Simulated assay, not measured.
Amino acid sequence: MANLPTSPKSQMPLAIDAQIEIDGIGMGVLSDGTPFLTARGLARLCGIQHTSILDIANDWASNRPAITKIHSLLQTHGLTYEEPYTTVVDKGTMSHAYPDGVCLAILEYYAFEAGINRKDEALMNFRLLAGKALRDFIYTQVGYDPENHVPTQWKQFHDRMSLVYNAVPAGYFGVFKEIADMVVHLGQSGIHIDSTFVPDGSVGIHWAKHWKAAELENVYSPRIKYEHNYPDYFPQALSNPQESNCYPESALGEFRRWFREVYIGAGKFEAYLTTKVKAKSLPISVAQLAISSYANQPLLK
């Protein structure tokens, strides 16, 4: 048999990057690039009941002959999975994504190894989808290009950064670019920027108040305006170009101290998240994750 593809082990919380259903077969790609099928989609390929896939998942750690054989098929191709699926939350709903490696092992089992439970449909589909064919099929159906793809959850940050990266005049800094490390850290914790979660707006407002109250213009020289644009699919783009403040580079040290000790350390970031929760634009679970992601960070010590 052809080699099964390997599903990479990610340390980041995974999300669904792209998903589609074709002829009752639910499929998609996770944020680490792993193609997957839903339980119902996998069952349809194998020609079996949806409940049979659920039974395999529930018994994954057992010594049932079928489970033992599926594990053996995986090991033949150098694969092991502690669980047969990845649990993901998409639009507030929890679902199970079965990676392509597991799918092909189960499909191979029902094609050749299931005894009286062998399925002709499984045999036909395995012949069509063995090796990389399933992976390539899913990529094609969802329109995913693994060579030139920005994962969906990073796309909005990527698109915003591409518009502001060189927009600030030489000798000055802008808030969005300066807090990019924070946005990346949040993304690695599973919290991604979108049109309703724009932390640089909050940072910019509080920093501007500090700049004025501390009369920092007298210390570092005046701030100036630059054109800040949002990607055209953001609601904020209706008022593009927007005039935003940028500050003398000589004030960077003060900004970083203020950001560490005041915005994060003194609770302004937590207050921002609280307002988002009250406005129902951010789930409380996400806000709690964002706060806890900074709880043990060196910048708070």
Rank of each mutant, 00 (worst) to 15 (best):
H158Q: 09
H158C: 10
H158G: 08
D159Y: 07
D159P: 04
D159G: 10
R160V: 11
M161H: 13
S162N: 11
S162T: 09
L163H: 04
L163R: 13
V164R: 12
A167S: 12
A167H: 03
A167R: 04
V168E: 10
V168Q: 08
P169M: 09
P169Q: 06
A170R: 15
A170P: 13
Y172T: 06
Y172Q: 02
Y172C: 09
Y172E: 10
F173S: 03
G174W: 06
V175G: 00
V175T: 09
F176Y: 15
K177P: 05
E178S: 11
D181F: 15
D181S: 13
M182K: 01
V183P: 00
V183Q: 07
V184L: 12
G187Y: 00
G187M: 02
Q188Y: 11
Q188H: 09
S189W: 00
S189N: 14
S189V: 00
G190D: 08
G190C: 05
G190S: 09
G190A: 09
G190E: 08
I191G: 02
H192M: 04
I193S: 05
I193C: 07
S195P: 02
T196L: 13
F197V: 01
V198T: 09
P199M: 03
D200F: 10
S202E: 15
V203L: 03
G204W: 02
G204C: 01
I205Q: 11
I205A: 12
I205G: 02
H206W: 03
H206F: 05
A208V: 00
A208N: 10
A208E: 05
K209F: 02
K209R: 14
K209P: 00
H210N: 08
H210S: 04
H210R: 10
W211I: 05
A213K: 15
A214W: 06
E215S: 14
L216I: 05
L216V: 01
L216C: 06
L216A: 05
L216Q: 09
E217K: 10
E217S: 15
E217Q: 15
N218H: 12
V219E: 12
V219W: 03
Y220Q: 04
S221G: 13
